[in-house]
Amino acid sequence: MLHIKCPWCGWRDESEFGYGGEAHIERPKDPDSVSDAEWADYLFFGSNRRGDFRERWVHSAGCRRWFNAVRDTTTYEFKAFYRMGEEPPGGEQ
């Protein structure tokens, strides 16, 4: 079981958390102006990165707040936890 550090509550077991997939995917500002392909890309397509992956978690059985994490998807080791709105550590991927 993964051990996850909620930025508000500290280290807890994975079973207290929900998973939100890839982080930093921005909703198109004006949905009416984008093409079907761009909308599909926003909605369904992702990086599915092998290696360091930025992802969202929600502490659903705790404080119920969302936050971001960087995790290596080959070893499952967490590299960083940071709050929503904060810059991801390590800069651009």
């Binding site: 079981m1 993964l2 077991d13 994975e14 079973s15 929900g18 998973y19 997939g21 890839e22 599915n48 990165r49 092998r50 992956f53 992802e55 995790r71 998807t73 080959t74 070893t75 499952y76």
Partner: peptide, 13 residues
């Protein structure tokens, strides 16, 4: 498992 992972291992929960 609920998270992305290439590691061919999952969580015991």
């Amino acid at each position: 498992d609920k998270y992305n992972g290439y590691g061919q291992k999952g969580s015991i929960s």
